[in-house]
Nucleic acid binder design. Structure first.
Lengths: 192, 192
DNA sequence: GAGTTTTCTTATCTTTTGTTAACGTTTTTT
DNA sequence: AAAAAACGTTAACAAAAGATAAGAAAACTC
């Protein structure tokens, strides 16, 4: 059961059993029902999750409206990274889009491991670098591409799975446009 | 001279002399003339720089046009982070906006230090986290704010210094709009 | 310091995007 | 099963942004 998480971590760095055993006792399995929260705006996020089944969305509230800016899928880590790093209340909420099964552990355990173990400290660096690369790529898309180009890029990416089971207005938010605008883009594409 | 860099690094983590001495022999001082390059699209970036004096811009080329997406200032590190991390040819170029004085060292030295020293590995994590936080903040602005709001945010930030000595069309690129559009925004602001 | 280049603004026109509202469909709730 | 809510599309209009060009001012070059 917890081996799924171990396998994921080992995509970044090989773990000896002694490394894994440092984390293992702090793992727990939890379930979050559709529309329930993993993390909530205004509250510090102190947990790291790993999605075993289901998916979640990451959103801001602006002028009373929710703007979805990220999705988390199976076999991926989920957390309010910014809140974990700063220790401050989260600016965003993370909500389950479907009933979701997670493995969770406290962020404080991870920082503890950073100090105790070279392997874990390195993992912390690699994951931060990985996140930075993802953000850099997404930001470039926002600066350099039109909304239509971004949508095409999304369709052509390995994130296609986003499209399978996620309402379109969330995807529109993710692309930085309105749902109406996305609908027009899709319409235009059909006509070609 | 090199102490400026040490001071900067110690904003992230305290360095013992023995840590600093691991890096020191690999440091060099270089000068880059206005309009000359620190790193070039198509070539892997293998150096980290620290700007002692001057400033630089980071830009993509799209359809033959240069789009400036980032600036580097005095007392900050500069590099094509993505290219360093992946080892692949850079997608961007970094050019001096003014005659610039830098301290440089090879990225390979840094990765070597990551393996040799806990302190440096931690520095690697902290800097990656810092970069991720910056990118997250900027991306949020691009998704949630209008161009005009973004410009106001920029004016109100600690990056005001950007505005002092950088041509407006570069700032427009940075905001994700055209120079004409930025000029209109500024015009509207005057009238209020 | 004359001439060139770069930079910024302004105007006009076009395209894209946002806003609001209406409608039909699907999904969820009760 | 009926009612309510959520979702996606479309239309009409408004606002914002892009493209292009022209002109003035500033900066740079020789």
């Amino acid at each position: 059961m917890f081996t799924l998480l171990r396998t994921h971590i080992e995509k970044f760095i090989p773990l000896g059993n002694e490394d894994w055993d440092l984390l293992l006792p702090h793992l727990a399995e939890i379930f979050i029902r559709k529309n329930d929260y993993f993390s909530r705006e205004g509250k510090p996020c102190k947990e790291i999750g790993f999605i075993v089944e289901g998916c979640m969305r990451h959103f801001y509230t602006k002028d009373g409206e929710e703007k979805t800016t990220y999705f988390y899928f199976e076999n991926n880590l989920v957390t309010d990274y910014l809140s974990c790093l700063t220790g401050k209340p989260g600016l965003i909420s993370i909500e389950a889009l479907y009933d979701t099964k997670l493995i969770v552990f406290p962020y404080s355990v991870l920082t503890q491991l950073y100090s105790e173990s070279k392997v874990w400290e390195r993992f912390g660096r690699l994951i931060a670098e990985y996140i930075a690369m993802g953000l850099e790529e997404r930001m470039t898309g926002l600066l350099m591409l039109s909304a239509e180009e971004r949508y095409h890029q999304l369709l052509g990416s390995n994130k296609q799975k986003i499209l399978e089971r996620i309402p379109q207005h969330f995807i529109a938010n993710y692309l930085g446009i309105t749902p109406v605008s996305l609908s027009r883009i899709r319409n235009r594409m059909l006509k070609k």
